[in-house]
């Protein structure tokens, strides 16, 4: 028996995990896929009516709000990732140097990412308040122009990006820092022998060596950024005037606000395909860059 297990370890070991994932996910996904082909208001009296691909055609072909939410999802993710990577890189380079209290500082930088998003959303909500919030007061005291933050269509999504950057930049920084620390020293010595400047060394030696680390971190982060829900739900619920309605929020509103379960399900299927596509594309790009 035990020999049999050993021979088939490849199957036996992952089996419980795989069965669990399949059992928990297969029914919801199949169910959603089926509902996405129907028109259904979640009624207990009128059953779901099969309408083929009509929900998809409506979303992709006619629904302006859908395309706006796609755009916002990518805008949010893109801006957040660029910000987090750049600021994270700067912060990592700054932390890659010994000074007293460095460990404590590194530890404190962990806090934004582990703090509960719905709770942190409430704190930012209070700080963003245009009249009673601290941020505007702070800007005012520096004689800088104030912003309406979440209260205006123009700045609401960018304000949420700011929260995301606050939350996740430290993670990027710590990952990049770990990459910096684990680098072999030979290339740097070679660069020094060649008389390269600090900037040249950074650009031609450090960055290329960091690329796989950053690449993987960006992929993992982009999955979560595309799916951001808690922060947006607790702060704006997609408003004002849909200015922060990403795909996840629009799906939520279609289902729980408008009771259009068929349309919501087809949106979720498209959303799933988009995230999957982004992951596959980025993974392909990363591998391409490596070889």
């Amino acid at each position: 028996m035990s020999r049999w297990i050993e021979k088939n370890l490849k199957w036996v070991f992952p089996a419980p995990a795989v069965i669990f994932i399949v059992v928990m996910m297969a029914f919801p996904i199949l169910y959603t896929a089926w509902i996405s082909l129907t028109e259904w208001s979640m009624s207990a009296v009128t059953p779901a009516k099969f309408i083929g691909l009509e929900n998809y055609i409506n979303l992709l072909g006619k629904d302006h709000r859908f395309w706006m939410s796609v755009w916002r999802t990518f805008y949010f993710t893109g801006l957040a990732l660029v910000g987090e990577t750049l600021i994270g890189l700067v912060l990592a380079v700054m932390l890659n140097r010994d000074f007293p209290g460095k460990n404590l500082l590194k530890t404190l930088f962990l806090l934004p990412m582990v703090a509960t998003p719905v709770a942190i959303g409430m704190v930012w909500l209070l700080m963003f308040e245009p009249t009673i919030g601290y941020l505007n007061h702070f800007l005012k005291s520096l004689h800088l122009p104030q912003s309406l933050w979440l209260a205006s269509e123009g700045s609401a999504l960018a304000s949420l990006v700011l929260v995301d950057i606050w939350q996740w930049t430290p993670m990027m920084a710590l990952i990049i820092l770990a990459g910096l620390v684990s680098m072999p020293s030979d290339p740097f010595e070679a660069a020094e022998v060649d008389g390269a400047s600090a900037w040249q060394t950074f650009w031609h030696v450090t960055l290329p060596m960091l690329r796989p680390t950053i690449g993987m971190a960006v992929i993992l982060r982009s999955i979560d950024a595309l799916k951001t829900f808690d922060i947006i739900y607790s702060m704006t619920q997609g408003g004002p005037n849909y200015a922060t309605e990403t795909l996840n929020l629009y799906g939520y509103n279609l289902g729980f606000g408008y009771f259009q379960m068929g349309a919501a399900s087809s949106l979720l299927m498209i959303f799933f395909a988009i995230v999957m596509g982004v992951v596959i594309f980025m993974n392909w790009a990363r591998k391409g860059a490596l070889s």
Binding site: P14, M25, F229, V275
Partner: peptide, 29 residues
């Protein structure tokens, strides 16, 4: 055990399957 099998027996596709759990939008469930 799953991670062990994936790591020692080189089963990247299985690793990816488990990652799918993070890709599906939560509302679906």
């Amino acid at each position: 055990p799953a991670a062990y099998a994936i790591a020692r027996r080189r089963l990247p596709s299985l690793g990816f399957t488990i990652l799918v759990a993070r890709i599906v939008p939560g509302i679906t469930f």
